[in-house]
Amino acid sequence: MSTGATKSIDTGRQPGTPTAASAKARGFVAPPKLRRPRHLGWLVMTLYLIFLLLPIYWLVNMSFKTNVEITNTFSLWPNDPTLRNYRVIFTDPSWYGGYINSITYVVMNTVISIAVALPAAYAFSRYRFLGDKHLFFWLLTNRMAPPAVFALPFFQLYSAFGLIDTHIAVALAHCLFNVPLAVWILEGFMSGVPREIDETAYIDGYSFPRFFVKIFMPLIASGIGVTAFFCFMFSWVELLLARTLTTTAAKPIAAIMTRTVSASGLDWGVLAAAGVLTIIPGALVIWFVRNYIAKGFALGRV
């Protein structure tokens, strides 16, 4: 196959920087006309990344400044770098408690979402049953429905069950949009596994639960990982429902940020430091799923 041949030549040709490598590889495979857009492409990409990183840089920059420096002087980097803002957060339980609360309900939500979505996604990808299409659409509408619509009765609903201000309440509330999402993504990944595998396993005498755990789940392990990432992400970034359902004991960090700032006036430095700390968990997990992010966003359907 000529494709394979050219590809191996390309990879053999890769020298130092990615810029040079890619441009050279392109020049070899594609016509000369494509060369100029590649350079243009690097310009576009660089500008776009600068645009993405500038606001984040500004937040990081602020988090290392003293409040005096933030309000009185305008500087592109901290003239008098300080760790005070971070120290405030790590020594005050009401601050770092917020992180623990957020992580707790996010993890709970991820576990619940995946546990219930796995069998459902299997059912959707393998069988036809009464009302399957409409059930699937109904799940989708829950992902699309504005949380503000549900926030109204949620407080009463969770009060009736005595769940207000608990982690499980937020975890359950976030299932509203995470379970449909998990079913969608998992269904996409499962549909990529040939059905012959199921049939062979049943012929070999595997029971359904054993087949599912021993054979099927390892096959879609990357799909489960991506789904976990997405559940984590959407539970982590959501605030409206999380804030509605908590008062003190389970309050998420993002809500503590807004409250503390309005109460204590303008502690910009601590605000910025808290913001930076909310970015870090996300940044850490992205690295592990970077090659699957797009597939997950496409609900497993690329």
Partner: peptide, 17 residues
């Protein structure tokens, strides 16, 4: 990774930024 970064920031932190 850099492109996905804004997607993982809590929405009110996006607002604050």
């Amino acid at each position: 990774v850099l492109m996905a970064l804004p997607l993982l920031i809590p929405w009110n932190v996006v607002g604050t930024i």
